[in-house]
């Protein structure tokens, strides 16, 4: 049996990817399960989905704790969540990452087998938008087998209708462009630590240590007003962030008024300041700034 965990963001189609793969495996006569992991987070938030494939009937209905393979749909997740969490030593990582960013994978090299592909570029070139959930499956098939490109046609047709051809092309291209290196000779068992502050809901709960039954507030109330501020939604951004052109900004405050996430705020001396911790990157501020002072650009980590 092979167990696979998909990492994506709400709205990126990680669940669909797991589903398509399961349908294909079932068409091949195998047994498969695809299932999502639901939480309160919404579009943009890091999410996971799971896939099990086996030659034998599957009698498990539990979450996957130590996957054989992880698939990462969104390159911005690599620094944000511990995508290798629980991954078996020597396990496979299928990563969507531009060639220029592959340095980030070095830390995984001696523990896991890392197959990388620039799925975002392939998706833009084939489908027209950077939705990588079909391209990445091409890489997964190259890296792990599971099913064939041929079998994928049926499920893809069913899911995407007239858009199936483009998605199949993305699948094919990703299959071809994926490099699968040798497995590390003696993988070390230790998984790398999470990149940044833990950001999954579960981790957060653990940290808060508010889970012991006789320490809960009466009726499970929350008496920490405004405490979501401890949860930084800045890591939901995946398509750039707002940059304020100080020359143009007149501190009119419209971006502050229109920001759903309170991420554009006045400083004490009346200037507008962007808050990287909470900005989800919606782009409303840039669209609504009457002076055209805000532009959404890819994040450069120097700033």
């Amino acid at each position: 049996m092979m167990e696979i965990r998909f990492h994506g963001r709400g709205g990126q189609g990680a669940v669909t990817a797991a589903e398509l793969m399961a349908r294909a495996a079932i068409l091949d006569g195998k047994y498969a399960q695809a299932f999502p992991n639901f939480g309160p987070e919404r579009r943009g938030a890091p999410v996971t989905a799971f896939l099990r494939v086996s030659e034998q009937p599957i009698y498990l209905r539990e979450k996957i704790e130590s996957p054989d393979t992880v698939v990462v749909l969104d390159p911005t997740l690599i620094d944000l969540v511990n995508v290798a969490d629980g991954l078996k030593p020597g396990g496979m990582m299928v990563m969507n990452l531009a060639a220029s960013g592959r340095g980030a994978l070095a830390k995984y090299g001696d523990q896991f087998q890392v197959a990388a592909v620039d799925a975002s570029r392939i998706a833009v070139e084939t489908i027209g938008i950077p939705v990588t959930n079909t391209a990445i499956l091409g890489s997964l098939i190259k890296a792990c087998g599971i099913t064939s490109l041929k079998t994928m046609e049926g499920p893809m047709q069913r899911r995407f209708g007239r858009l199936a051809a483009k998605n199949l092309l993305a699948l094919q291209r990703a299959f071809e462009e994926t490099e699968v290196p040798e497995a590390p000779a003696a993988p070390s068992p230790a998984a790398p630590a999470a990149g940044q502050e833990g950001c999954t809901y579960a981790e957060l709960l653990q940290r808060e240590a508010l889970l012991v039954w006789d320490q809960l507030q009466i009726g499970c109330d929350i008496d920490l007003p405004g405490s979501t501020a401890a949860f930084h939604t800045g890591n939901w951004r995946s398509a750039g962030r707002p940059y304020i052109d100080r020359e143009k900004c007149v501190s009119c405050g419209f971006c502050h008024v229109y920001c759903p996430d309170l991420a554009m705020n006045f400083t004490d001396d009346g200037a507008i300041e962007w808050d990287h911790r909470y900005c989800k990157g919606c782009g409303i501020c840039a669209e609504e700034c009457p002076k055209g002072a805000i532009s959404m650009r890819e994040e450069s980590h120097e700033q």
Binding site: G11, F231, P260, D261, L262
Partner: peptide, 19 residues
Amino acid sequence: LASGHRACQGCGEVLAMRL
């Protein structure tokens, strides 16, 4: 409302509620 809420990117409803 504090930030850190889990609404979708660009949610018009949470903005309306905030205002």
